[in-house]
Nucleic acid binder design. Structure first.
Lengths: 342, 342
DNA sequence: CTGAAAGCGCTTACAG
DNA sequence: CTGAAAGCGCTTACAG
């Protein structure tokens, strides 16, 4: 209150740099673009002038002429609570932010929870305020997918978007093979009555992991018993409920493959409640290797999703899309992490 | 691959709207600014033209002349892993995103984990690419605080920044009173050997909650026993370790006030390990009322931080700062949530 | 390799 | 209340 607040000075412009370097603004700009067609002396003078003036490019001015925003939206379309409780979400968000930062591209976080938000965000995105979209949504029939597709927006999804005619490129872990690895491991430890708690069956992780489970049992010559399959919703409470249901339907189960760590944590609670020891009576395998996996009791044997690679690939694919290259999806291998629960 | 990709059409400009409405671009712009000094007929014609053309303002062009970016940075300066595991972080991030969205202001997520990131982000922010900063950092001596202060950047912190000469405005829950309410509650249930697991003592939540604990015991005429105080680090593992240490130092404790739910969850594990029943032998009180509080066993009695209000207030204060109003911090009341653990 | 100039899409005094 | 015009800070053909 006592000190006068000096107005923030206007930052130096390309004009200041040009004057300082004693050359034209066009040449300064050329240096900024990579220094092609610029003499070594000019290059040197400009760089010195930039350092001296503390020049930083004005992105608005640049964007106005290039018609690119050099920014990217990270768009959440899931019902809000779900994803904001999911430890995977944080890893993905952090990974994408970091990967983009390396290219000096800011990430705009957008949450399209309500219909109104969807409209506003749709308008914002399709008006050229971002160059592309990192799309996070797992449930099928997401209206944003169609909208973005029609607007010809470069989009890459996290996980294969289900229930669309459009073919949005995506990046995902190999859900099927991850599930197979886990079930093979459980079989290898002598388990024969292996149950599963799936993710929602309108999500790729729900479907593909269930298929991996089924195929592996079939290959081992084991029967498909409907009593051994329960659908969860990726929440802890959902995992607990599903486990309770499984114990009622198939009291003789000796293992359970759970399609997410969070649900597995809930399953552990249900098993404890039922007086089953883990892993002695029932082996429990999770999926994700999220931050909670090492903290469950017992610590969770699980399938690691390579979130660092997933987010890095999402950014890479999106940038290639923005550059006009044709789309391509990528599937990344998972890794079995053995701890105490199986 | 088979279909030709039509180039994205250039969006309509203010010029298209003006032509459509049969008036000048200046008047269109005035309508966009709120419609002051515009005749009802012109207003109507412009609005119709906007609808017809599907016009959306080009923010880059606008920012270029207004020298404002109409965007805000959400800046994380904590060692990355810490905050990305903290359930509070998600609530804060979601709340801020939603509150800003109502003003049509995008949130740019920035993570300043490494020294290099700090430098790059500092340059980005102080170059006018954002109008203000929502700062998340709890540990004292954060170098970004000084930097932003020198650059005269509008910034509001989540929680009082410690160890700075600058007086960055902040928004926080009433940590002291929240701790008092919990300890009073524990006293009210007859507990007399009440321990505490604090947050890091270079964070406001660490200090203020400890003070609230101490003051309440003193007011009740109880002695201050150093054996009843252990410092945690806001992590689950830290809570577990601290609880184990407390049990060794003060085996007769009958309650523990833990400065975060995550640490309380760890404390519950340690208590179970030690064969102490909760709440019969030891009452456990947490802090935050984060998403995990209802899922611990037993469910956690805790102090709710009003994250929705905190994030809404952070956005409000930041906007008033951007508008040139003088700074003001705000302290929000907490609420005691009684569940099963105490 | 370099400079002069046009233009990106807006806002905002300034006259009227 | 309205239009003409200047200008925000860049990039990019175009000549040379």
């Amino acid at each position: 209150m006592t000190e006068a607040t000096p107005a923030r000075r206007r930052p130096p412009t390309i004009h200041d740099v040009a004057r300082e370097a004693g050359i034209s603004r066009g040449t300064v700009s050329r240096v900024l673009q990579g220094g092609h067609n610029v003499s070594p002396e000019a290059l040197k003078a400009v760089n010195a002038a930039i350092r001296k003036t503390g020049y930083v490019v004005n992105r608005h001015a640049r964007s106005l002429v290039t018609q690119r925003s050099d920014s990217v939206a990270f768009l959440l379309t899931e019902p809000q609570t779900r994803f904001f409780e999911d430890p995977n979400f944080n890893q993905l968000l952090r990974g994408c932010t970091t990967a983009l930062a390396k290219h000096d591209i800011p990430l705009l976080l957008m949450i399209a929870g309500t219909e109104e938000e969807r409209r506003r965000i749709g308008r914002y995105i399709t008006s050229g305020h971002v160059d592309g979209v990192l799309l996070v949504s797992s449930h099928s029939g997401n209206p944003m997918v169609e909208l973005l597709d029609e607007a010809r927006m470069p989009v890459v999804a996290c996980g294969k978007p289900l229930g669309h005619t459009s073919t949005t490129p995506y990046v995902a872990a190999d859900d099927n093979e991850g599930a197979r690895a886990m079930v093979r491991y459980l079989l290898g430890t002598g388990r024969r009555r292996i149950a599963t708690i799936t993710g929602p069956l309108d999500t790729p992780g729900g479907v593909d992991r269930l298929n991996g489970y089924r195929e592996t049992l079939a290959e081992a010559g084991l029967p498909q018993d409907p009593a051994l399959v329960a659908e969860g919703d990726y929440s802890r409470a959902g995992g607990e409920a599903a486990m309770t249901a499984l114990l009622a339907a198939a009291p003789d189960l000796d293992a359970v493959f759970v399609a997410s760590d969070l649900m597995a944590d809930g399953a552990l609670a249900a098993l404890e409640q039922a007086g089953r020891r883990v892993p002695e009576d029932v082996a429990v395998g999770g999926f994700d290797d999220s931050t909670i996996a090492a903290n469950t009791r017992p610590a969770l044997t699980t399938v690691r999703q390579p979130w660092d690679r997933i987010s890095a690939e999402m950014v890479r694919v999106l940038q290639s899309l923005i550059a006009g290259e044709p789309p391509a999806s990528v599937i990344l291998p998972t890794e079995l992490i053995v701890r105490a629960s199986a």
